[in-house]
Design a protein around this nucleic acid. Structure first.
Lengths: 335, 335
DNA sequence: TTGTACGCGTTATCAT
DNA sequence: ATGATAACGCGTACAA
């Protein structure tokens, strides 16, 4: 049988309450007793029963990551960062993928709260901006942190990068390479980051005194296929762009595949820039210019906020990083 | 307050035991009572307290996926398949990444069993073949299913594809394209699949009467960088291969990046074949020939075995698929 | 077919 | 600083 607190208390010659105190790092325990109990833990290889702790203590030592799924890499990096942080506090992270246009979204999240009895929740877009979700969290009084929220930044604790600034930096980089016609592939309309990145694109063009051309902006939805389709459309223009900025790495990969199929030597003929966690870009094309969105750090920091003993509403702005790889200016029209 | 069984029993006018019976789909309940209880569930929006069920019933309605991490895509696909299957039974999947050369591996798994009190476990390579892990499972009497085990296939329930056959099919494909010098990048030595895939490669060469050349085999460890390094080495040979078969998609991506950096027009000058879940290949290079290892299906099937009420030792062989895309024979020496 | 009473392992209350 | 005892919500012999 697995040892219980009772077994430990008998071995250490104290009451179960004292054992519980040691287990929970409470104060009022003499050093001598604490030592005896700790020793008993070790000799019995005691491991607390989580179900019992949860039932009696109204806490589960679990937090959840509710994550939508445009890019497996994004999810992976986010999960890793959060899990690493949780490990430090002996908390388990449970991953809860969700589908942003599922009509069971609210139900899924509520059943997560009840089912796992999680102590807190980390939300990624676009659920971060759904009023029903925010209402649910308020109603259930669950601690939560939002990653890259698009609205009401001050409403709750949240973590984000400067999407506008990052996109502008990327466009400035392309401009510095000599590009004047820069295509832009947007993200999914449900994501606030899509609009933010587009705003950065426009801001940088304005700075440079380049007129905004709506034809150069094509809709995408953060996946490979939409990136490829948007690229086809851009390259079919009468005056095609010499560079394309895709709003995330997955779509940049799609753009590259099209460029390649068409025999365009990238990046000589076409600069393609991605905006993501750099993981996919690493696989796809060493010469790709990328804004590194530090997904893992975002995850880590979100967990940090959530696990803080004094859980207060805070905003954390995580710095982004512009990664320039070898790439050249426009060589010829990319049509 | 959240409603409890007590509240439900009061509303339905029955005892808590009867409510419990309905909750657990037990037999001896009259249809009328069952209906009343079900109605009470609905009006109260009752959700069972998992901690209490676990504590009293000695089951957690959770299974774990212990997964090592050569390729994020593999992990992602595996998780998705298992989660889909679990949903059907109202079971939660908890993901437990592990590091195959961590010395805390056994401890991690045991704390998973104790901590989450999981009802079952799905193991992926290489822990599937670690004697200490198998001993632990036996000692703790935990249900488990192995994915792609390399040894003792009959020891436990397990799910796999025919790695030898798949690798041979791939090589036959490359041979049919006219290739005679085919490079091979192995997987990590800890994984049994590495040896199996190499065996398939050799078998196909034997069939074709082509002598095995050890120089054409380079070690890799299932990640992008090692695939790139191995490719550099292969292309530096006095007689370089005209085709390269990488033991998974991540390494194939690495191979492609090197070919590209060298200005080789793939696949005109060099055929590169991958062996994986096809996800990375889709991103990297549409013309890549790939063995589709149906990872999601593997996961789904593994969960199927684990969740079956009558849990018996079974082996399930999942079919693989050879995906041929447009690709040409060797055009010139790829050096 | 249905109900009663106890136990699961821990935390919390209120003593001492 | 420490201990006795009552919750926590549900499953399960056992009884009816």
């Amino acid at each position: 049988m697995r040892p219980t607190i009772n077994d430990v208390s008998r071995l250490a010659g104290v009451s179960i309450k004292t054992v519980s105190r040691v287990l929970n790092n409470e104060d009022r325990v003499s050093d001598a007793t604490r030592a005896r109990v700790t020793a008993a833990f070790a000799t019995l290889k005691y491991r607390p029963n989580m179900a019992a702790r949860t039932l009696a203590g109204h806490r589960s030592f679990q937090i959840a990551l509710a994550c939508d799924n445009p890019s497996p890499y994004y999810v992976y990096e986010m999960q890793s960062g959060i899990r690493d942080r949780c490990l430090l506090d002996g908390v388990r992270m449970v991953a809860q993928p969700y589908d942003h246009d599922s009509d069971r979204l609210i139900d899924d999240i509520e059943s997560l709260i009840d089912g796992s009895g999680v102590d807190g929740l980390i939300l990624t877009p676009p659920a971060t901006d759904y009023p029903e979700v925010l209402a649910l969290m308020a109603r259930r009084k669950v601690r939560f942190v939002r990653v890259s929220p698009g609205t009401d930044l001050d409403l709750t604790a949240s973590v984000f990068i400067d999407n506008v600034g990052a996109a502008a930096a990327m466009v400035r980089h392309l401009l510095a390479l000599g590009h004047r016609r820069i295509g832009f592939i947007t993200g999914h309309a449900s994501y606030a980051t899509s609009a933010q990145r587009l705003a950065g694109y426009r801001a940088a063009l304005d700075e440079a005194g380049i007129a905004f051309d709506p034809l150069l902006v094509r809709p995408g939805d953060y996946d490979f296929a939409s990136g490829a389709a948007a690229t086809e459309a851009l390259l079919a223009l009468r005056l095609p762009p010499t560079a394309i900025f895709a709003s995330n790495d997955d779509m940049a990969a799609g753009a590259l595949s099209v460029a390649h199929r068409r025999g365009l030597s990238v990046p000589a003929a076409l600069s393609i820039a991605g905006f993501g966690d750099d993981a996919i870009a690493r696989y796809v094309w060493p010469a790709l210019t990328t804004i590194r969105q530090p997904t893992r750090l975002l995850g880590y920091t979100a967990a940090d906020l959530l696990l803080a003993p004094e859980f207060v509403v805070k905003r954390i702005d995580v710095p982004f990083e512009l990664i320039r790889r070898e790439s050249t200016g426009p060589a010829r029209s990319a049509g």
